[in-house]
Design a protein around this nucleic acid. Structure first.
Lengths: 139, 139
DNA sequence: CCGAAGTTTCCTATCATTGTAGAGTTAAAC
DNA sequence: GTTTAACTCTACAATGATAGGAAACTTCGG
């Protein structure tokens, strides 16, 4: 299997496969005499693991840890669970931040009449001299 | 006001102020004979506008548009409202993606007993040969 | 044997931000 | 009046994950 087939089989672009290899997330795979990369079924399996972890929002560094846990046949499932729970907390934190932003914006939008007149509380609040908005933004 | 005071007054770091100037988000401010930047009250006002917009998750490009709307005394408030609504949709899209990730991960965590034994469905599903998980990840 | 498609490495860019390094400036303390 | 600390200036590098392209090479179908 060359890199194009591996990309199609794993869902990870060839470009990213080379990148993951260059930073050491995956070990260098085999090569033909001409220097073409050759991917084994095991390599594809690892790439699919990475694809799924990435889809769950894990960073490269976190995926590196996950791969280590995966390859450690003696790890406790509680270690993996703790890792996942930490990640869930990170996701929650991001979600909360984005929701707070959305709510502030929705509040501003609600008070903007949205017609052809130029006065608009959205820009007004962004430009406010007061500290009112700061409290809302202290997420 | 020099850049340090401007940073403290606006909430934007000196480094970012220089950066915003370099990419043209803000116009170059005055300078002393020695080349130190001098910020007027109006400059600080603009920086605070940027600080608040950034806190609401607007990108530099979006802030540039917002500043243009702000300085256009004849814009319709509906233009601003439409802009804000688009941004709310972007925020919603991000939130939905993160929530889907969290839910999948929570589902996996729920089925991991989390003891000292090595078998764990979290890693098991990440490594799955099947396409089951792919459906979940088709967000 | 030729051309198309695939692959290689290397370089560049993105976005917003931080860090670093060297040189110059200001202000206060001694 | 000199030392010293704190500031400022510019310029460049790095981050993290990804995309794009260029130039050279290989493979494969006809």
């Amino acid at each position: 299997m060359n890199i194009g087939e591996a990309a199609r089989a794993s869902g990870i672009s060839g470009k990213m496969i080379r990148y993951y290899e260059s930073i050491g997330l995956i070990a260098p795979v085999g090569r033909t005499d001409a220097g073409y990369r050759v991917f084994s079924d095991k390599d594809i399996h690892t790439l699919r693991f990475i694809f799924r972890a990435r889809s769950l929002g894990f960073s490269v560094e976190q995926m590196s840890n996950l791969l280590a846990l995966w390859h450690d046949r003696h790890r406790a499932s509680s270690d993996v669970k703790a890792f996942a729970l930490t990640h869930i907390e990170e996701l929650n934190s991001k979600i909360n931040k984005l929701q707070a932003m959305r709510e502030t914006l929705e509040h501003l939008v609600k008070h903007c009449h949205g017609d052809e007149r130029p006065d608009c509380p959205i820009l007004g609040d962004l430009a406010a001299e007061s500290v009112e908005l700061d409290d809302k933004l202290a997420l």
